[in-house]
Amino acid sequence: MNQFQYVRPSKPQAAIEAVTKDANATFIAGGTNLVDLMKRGIATPQKLVDINRLPLNKIEKENNGLRIGALALNSAVADDKLVRQKQPLLALALNAGASAQLRNMATVGGNMLQRTRCSYFYDLAMPCNKREPGTGCGALEGINRMHAIFGFSDKCIAVHPSDMSVALVALDATVLVSGPKGERRIPFADFHRLPGDTPEKDTNLEKGELITAVDIPDGPFTKHVHYQKVRERASYAFALLSVAAALDIENNTIKAARLAMGGVAHKPWRLTAAEQVLVGKPATEATFRQAAEVAMQGAKAFKHNAYKLKLGPNTIVQALRTAAAAA
């Protein structure tokens, strides 16, 4: 790893300035992905701005919703009473990710900013447009069983690895950002990008912008929720595919629904059309299957990930089944 300069400002504004002014500076919070990328020479910042001591880790009620500080630890959020009561789906998604130790380090902001786990991105000796624009996409004609079925481009077919983000996009969260030009709010669905011609950009954050919090509006999704993650071992693995499902059911009729998938695109993949299929219908297997079919419209597979075309709808059905049955 290259040598770098290390600073630890105590105020957000100072941190923002430090990163804004220096082309090679970056924030570090939990470090669970950045340190890994630095060790492998994929990230080579010349300066790290440690934001861990900024006062951004509160979890509190805010304007008919929940505000979670960007530096709240994944474990703290997953175990938080307010979160479990108001947004249990988020707690489920968080606990499905990583390990207990990593959740004790990883922050909410950092979790969103995880980079893809694509093997080609991770190997300096193989092509990757995300890591080194213009070198080509190694996965396109390579080993792509983990890769995208939605929203990809011929420049990049990588997927976003976060579980938490799948829940947040389903829950209509908003990302609060503070930057050199002031503060702004980014709807979660617009936070991550599709690869297009610039796969090197994962998000719509601008240079120097610091995530300060995530707002989640209160909703009726306090009971019938489930996060279904399919992976190659029982725990501590990235998803082959995952589904976040939240239902509001009254007299066995679905009044409201939220549905999103992970492991299928360059960003957490909200399934709005499928949600619309669910609303007003009875919470039955037939309804779930119908929603799942709609959800998969437009999906396209590569050589090794065709199984996702079947695993996707099956996992949606399973997530909805479990959510509906949750007591």
């Binding site: 786990r117 093997s119 080609y120 991770y122 390579g142 071992r233 029982a234 725990s235 501590y236 693995a237």
Partner: peptide, 14 residues
């Protein structure tokens, strides 16, 4: 393309 324990899975407790 498998180069660590994230790509090459070995059994965990679960």
């Amino acid at each position: 393309v498998t180069k660590d324990f994230a790509d090459y899975h070995v059994p965990v407790h679960a």
